[in-house]
Amino acid sequence: MAKILIPTPLRQYAEKNNSVDVSGATVGEALASLTTQFPDLRKNLFNDEGKLRSFVNVYVNDEDIRYLQKDATAIADGDIISIVPSIAGGLC
């Protein structure tokens, strides 16, 4: 089992969970497991072609999957997957 950390802006689509245990051997499978559990997350994470949106980055532990094997990046038990969307707030 790996764990996906859900960032604050997306928790409303994941029944307020801040982390979710997921199954799967790759990042792609783990994200599929996540969006099966919480279908509302799908449109926030993926575009119409099913590709990860470009303002959402996914990390396995501290490494960006764009510099690993992207969706095919292997995950092991105990790995932490982080979803890091861009947030703009500052002045407010």
Binding site: P9, R53, S54, F55, P85, S86, G89, C92
Partner: peptide, 20 residues
Amino acid sequence: CLYPEPPPPGLVPSCAEGGV
């Protein structure tokens, strides 16, 4: 390098809507 593109308007809530 981190975010090549901005999110479409409305998909990411602002502080005025989301609070801080």
